[in-house]
Design a protein around this nucleic acid. Sequence first.
RNA 1: GGAGAGAUGGCUGAGUGGUCGAAAGCGCUCCCCUGCUAAGGGAGUAAGGGUGCUUGUACGCCCUUCGAGGGUUCGAAUCCCUCUCUCUCCGCCA
Length: 428
Amino acid sequence: MLDIRLLRDDPEAASRVLARRGHHLDREAFRTLDEERRARRQELDALRHRRNEQAKAIGAARARGEDIRTLLAHAQDEDARAAELEAELRRLDAALETLLLGLPNLPDPEVPDGRDENDNRELRRWGEPGTGEGRRDHVAIGELYRGMDFGRAAAIARSRFVVLSGPLARLQRALVALMLDLHTREHGYTEVYVPHLANAESLTASGQLPKFEADLFRLTEDPPLFLIPTAEVPLVNLVRGETLDGNALPLRYVAHSPCYRSEAGSYGRDVRGMIRQHQFEKVELVQITTPERSAQALEELTAHAEAVLKKLELPYRVMLLCAGDMGFAAARTHDLEVWLPSQKRYREISSCSNCRDFQARRLGLRCRIGTQKTWAHTLNGSGVAVGRALVALLENFQDDEGAVHLPAALVPYMNGERILRPPTGEGA
RNA sequence: GGAGAGAUGGCUGAGUGGUCGAAAGCGCUCCCCUGCUAAGGGAGUAAGGGUGCUUGUACGCCCUUCGAGGGUUCGAAUCCCUCUCUCUCCGCCA
């Protein structure tokens, strides 16, 4: 949520910055609504003040043993008007709230202009991308291992799910363990286990609601509960409504969780394989920090995600997202893209964002620095998407026989096995 | 699932219709005293919103908030209804 004073004091500037990310701000509608709301608020406050004074006078008069009948009659008069004003004000507050909740975060000045991923700016590369020549894609490897079954997953649930079995299921679990160990032991994160369902309040605070309900799986009505699209939702809501001691910051949380996304509107995109699923595993990093440290924290958090890919020896590049390609809550985002030989291109495997005070405002999350209280800053990033890491391993480290040569860091997590070999016998 | 108890400020905890945004204690901030330390004395200390100006680097006034929502009343932390959450006991269970 943006600071309403930004829109009030300099609507042209706010509107210009929002336009960079393709959002049109109706300045006139905002101004009318805001002014109307404040006028009604003043009217109601004055009315309530009169009412409070009258009530006090009645109490005092009664205590003195005076006749209070005329006072009572007079006091009853203004109730109807107050009820009217209250209803009107509720409507205006709700309308303004809806408007504010629908506005995306303002992009950082350094964020390049642009509409989509073609306008993102490459910051750096690591590793040597292999040629895709003669390589199987991960779906073919999965078939070879008889360990990746999209058909049966579709029969169990629907399309865009997968069943992993044998060494591939094991590999996914190993990746989760490696990432959690790396972030807790070397990067100072606290491991957290979180609910995989979230209510509307949590999802509004983190920014998915009210605008992106269509991207979520809703489980229940009354109260509505949703499957989490990322562990970022429970992690940032861990500190909802709190005022944290600035000296105790940053807080660093890491959680592994499944992520559930309806992928509405992605029909026909990445229909093959594990790249885009309704359910996938992810290790998520969240930091809560102070305004002056958040920019540096994004660099660190990005490096923490990069460290995973380096351990896995996977070639990648780091992209600074353009204004039009950023997520709703982000002020600045670094995407990590891993090399996929079968597609002969880099694909997103992590997205690291500084939300600055945007989420903190929705969360009611403050920090105290000396005697000053300000909104905290929140950051999040994948560290990294586990399903896509699995895909990248299978595609980058296979040999001609389809054996997968594991990076050294992963070997301890695979019970000492260095090479996965496809099964030789017949069978399901 | 059944029965009961509870939810008050940063924390503990009083408050059963008006003078209660709320006793007391703890914590915190500032000041005083004491040669250090410990102790002592004094003052202050919830949040959100609106508004005014002598625009204060802890200003004034007003409104709202005692789990949430609704009701009764001139007036609700206090009475009534609904919901949520927490705790205790029983049952069931991984």
